[in-house]
């Protein structure tokens, strides 16, 4: 880069996260684009891990970044940007999950039984179906248990990180995650401790 550039953002974006954040806070389009490019894949992966549903990813990523740009002024830098985005994503997915569950409950009341497919599924299809069942069971868990399980088991956050993210005591996190596992085993017809 030339030292004669009058727009310092172009120089500092790649190297300096603080400058990038400052640019995003100012509403600078280039800075926001850079911020988006840096973090979008991590957010997308997190959404996918949490929901298991690829059709949610685009919308959720968009929602997360809209919220992030709107709320960046309140980001104090206590945690890393990645942790902060992780928390926003988790909240967005939790909200979407709740809305989805309410919608699904409404639809279930008027649903007509679908014809059963008698063709034996191949291994990959069976695995996909099993994973879909897993996520369906996860979606049916009480939200507090589900959140603890997702953070601890799927996202592999530490007890302390989960405690901080969910705003509950470490002991509560531990209990909820364990309870979620038991409930999930039951929902999937699996025995715990085998």
């Amino acid at each position: 880069m030339s030292g004669t550039l009058t727009w310092p953002m172009a120089v500092t974006l790649d190297a300096d996260p603080a400058a990038l954040l400052a640019g995003v806070r100012r509403g600078d389009a280039a800075a926001q684009a850079e911020f988006f490019e840096r973090h979008k894949d991590a957010v997308a992966r997190q959404v996918m891990r949490m929901t298991g549903d690829a059709s949610w990813v685009d919308d959720m990523v968009q929602d997360v970044f809209v919220a992030a740009f709107a709320g960046l002024s309140s980001f104090r830098g206590d945690a890393s940007v990645a942790t902060w985005l992780h928390r926003i994503t988790m909240n967005k997915v939790r909200n979407a999950w709740d809305a989805h569950r309410r919608r699904a409950a409404r639809e279930a009341r008027v649903a007509v039984a679908e014809p059963v497919d008698h063709h034996p599924p191949d291994e990959e299809v069976a695995a996909q179906q099993q994973l879909a069942k897993f996520y369906a069971a996860l979606g049916e868990l009480p939200p507090t248990y589900r959140d603890a399980f997702v953070c601890r088991v799927i996202e592999e956050l530490s007890l302390e990180e989960t405690s901080e993210a969910l705003g509950v005591a470490v002991s509560t996190v531990s209990y909820r995650a364990r309870r979620a596992e038991v409930l999930l085993h039951e929902a999937l017809g699996l025995e715990v401790g085998r």
Partner: peptide, 25 residues
């Protein structure tokens, strides 16, 4: 942590490793 059923462990592992779809947004 609860001792997991192997099938459950496999599901969790699969969930963790899920690749994100290509983003269009």
């Amino acid at each position: 942590m609860t001792e997991r059923h192997p099938q459950f462990e496999a599901l969790v592992d699969r969930a963790r490793r899920q690749p994100a779809p290509p983003l269009t947004v």
